[in-house]
Design a protein around this nucleic acid. Structure first.
Lengths: 157, 157
DNA sequence: TCCTAATCTCTCGAAGATCGAGACTATCGC
DNA sequence: GCGATAGTCTCGATCTTCGAGAGATTAGGA
């Protein structure tokens, strides 16, 4: 294998390593707040939906974290019990239950993940705008490839 | 917020999005092989250790996936039952149990994750060596920051 | 309007995963 | 050898997830 390919392989490993570390951040957040991995994934999903201006329903949460409806009920029960989310009947379709994050949960998330984001953005100040553009293009493209592997058949060959 | 900062914030979101997609790849692998998330994490840890030429012990696996010893025993039981790993008493310290991946597990992992790695490396062919170098530097630095957040106190402020 | 099919969430009981405490064996230093 | 320590495993309890199905609501056609 030539040297250039070796460098690219190394970058692929860096991507995985980064993912492991981000997972560890979630794990830490979970431990600090007495949650399990699924709960954190769920909270993040609710936060992300809120960021895009739409409230997540129980079913949508299930799809996001890949759980069956019975598990989603239990999951939301847990989160509601500790006051991180609130169930709100959708007035337009009263079969649905939308989930709203509590202010304390939002604050905890902002503190934990926002702090990380701030540090990352700050460190990116060392890169030129052109370099950031390259990185953005790279990450977008790689995410697309990973996403394809996650859903369609793994190895097209 | 100025435009340059907005671009960097966008990149931070791209990192998280990538992580979510990589997680989905694991999820897919788990579903295809009848494993749960923890089992996949464990297999990846064993594979990674093997890549670095050292066999993982039961205790080391527990540290890698953050489980107590009782859970590690159950975890290894599961993986051994379906033939993905084998317990081998360490001849040097017979209290220890080292874990060896079976050939079939290794092949399954190589097919699934290797296929992804191949596609990623191939896509990286569109980037110049200089660009790859920038990306590598970026990923290394960001991983360091994330890692610090994962272990030490989250927001140094 | 009324009836039926589809959709969404929840309840219930069973199976699986994780934990804490403690037992058991092997190693190390004296 | 002997006590102290380290590494793994066993046991019982608790928490998480699932499958099946019930209950409630909506949409659409007769």
């Amino acid at each position: 294998m030539d040297e250039a390919t070796a460098a690219r392989r190394e970058v692929a490993l860096l991507l995985r390593r980064l993912s492991v570390e981000l997972d560890a951040v979630n794990q830490r957040f979970a431990a600090e707040h007495g949650l399990n991995r699924t709960d954190v994934r769920a909270l993040v999903a609710v936060m992300d939906a809120a960021r895009h201006g739409q409230a997540l329903t129980a079913g949508g949460l299930g799809a996001a974290v890949d759980l069956r409806s019975a598990s989603v009920t239990a999951l939301v029960d847990r989160l509601e019990r500790v006051g991180h989310v609130r169930r709100v009947r959708d007035p337009e379709d009263r079969r649905r239950v939308t989930l709203e994050m509590s202010e304390t949960a939002r604050a905890a998330g902002a503190q934990h993940f926002g702090g990380l984001a701030r540090d990352l953005v700050e460190a990116m100040g060392d890169y030129t705008d052109d370099e950031i553009a390259v990185v953005a293009r790279f990450l977008t493209e790689m995410t697309g490839i990973v996403s394809r592997h996650a859903r369609a058949e793994g190895a097209p060959d």
